[in-house]
Amino acid sequence: MAVADADLLVEVTGAVATVVIHNPARRNAMTTAMWRRLPRLLDDLEADPAVRVLVLTGADGTFCAGADLGDLDELLDAGDGSIAVAAEERLAGFAKPTVAAVQGACVGGGCQLAVACDLRIAAEDARFGVPPARLGLVYPAPTTRRLARLVGPAAAKHLLFTAELVDAGRALRVGLVDEVLSGDALAGRVDELTAAITARSQLTVAAAKEIVDGRADADRVAWWHGQVRASGEAREGVAAFHERRPPRFGWVPPAGR
């Protein structure tokens, strides 16, 4: 099958969906069409009961060099209402765990997407940057706040004020990434991590994501506890622990939850 020059490629293997940012001629920069497609693609994957984890990565050893500046006017005119921010917000709100697997450049819009994921695993050659100060742009407010929540105000200001690229080691120290591995080990570690997540209680995982992200009020938390009682997940988990066997978790999100 022919691959478009610039597109988002999707592969579902078992319970893991992998979305590949593919625009090799521009180091996987996100085009307007790609920003528009991402939320629709995420809607489909979120609705697929077979998918339990989403991995976001880039083609050919590069994560994403940012937004394609050929589309700059459209992005500028919209400000914080841009399609890039809408795509980022949809990714951040994805109901299932998300993992960014980062090699090479992860800059601008690429860093924006990586920060919107739940976890970030990086290869040693990964480089991260937030370049608006080089371009005379104002980084979107939701994006800026998300970055600051992740790395803290000082590290966020350093990235924003200087527009410097930081290596994977510094990214790890400030909390921008969770793990750094050799390039050869990255894919195996991502497979290991996603396998661990998919084997756990999806009730626990979904509830934890909502609560950590601040999207569960008191009524919603009570609803989650009700799901524990109604589903039998905890009884199965405890029984498996005592019987020294893998648990057979079976909770699936109720329709229209």
Rank of each mutant, 00 (worst) to 15 (best):
R248V: 09
R170N: 09
L42S: 00
G256N: 05
S201D: 13
G214M: 01
G66D: 03
G152L: 11
V51F: 04
E179L: 13
R120A: 14
G81R: 03
G104P: 03
G226M: 12
C117Y: 09
A95M: 00
A116K: 00
G109K: 05
L137V: 12
R245A: 15
R245S: 13
I121Q: 02
A206H: 14
L160M: 06
R189S: 12
V228G: 07
R257D: 15
D73W: 06
M1C: 10
V99W: 11
I21H: 10
G81L: 00
D5N: 10
V99H: 14
A84K: 03
A78K: 13
V3D: 13
Q103S: 13
P153H: 09
P142N: 07
G79H: 06
G183V: 08
F128S: 05
S182A: 13
A59L: 07
D77F: 09
W223H: 10
P131F: 06
L176P: 01
V212C: 04
I83M: 11
G81M: 01
V174C: 15
R245I: 12
H242C: 11
M30A: 11
R146E: 08
A208R: 07
E164T: 07
G79V: 07
G61T: 09
V177C: 08
R26T: 09
T57G: 09
W251R: 07
M34S: 05
G61F: 04
E164F: 06
L54I: 00
W251A: 08
V51A: 05
A141G: 06
A95L: 02
L137G: 08
R200V: 06
D213N: 12
D167M: 03
L45F: 01
R200Q: 15
A207T: 07
R134S: 14
A25V: 12
L137A: 12
G152M: 10
A33G: 13
A84R: 04
R36V: 02
H225T: 14
H242P: 00
T57S: 15
P246F: 08
R37K: 13
A116C: 01
A67P: 03
P97I: 03
T18A: 11
G14W: 00
V174W: 14
A86W: 03
G169L: 10
A195D: 13
E74W: 05
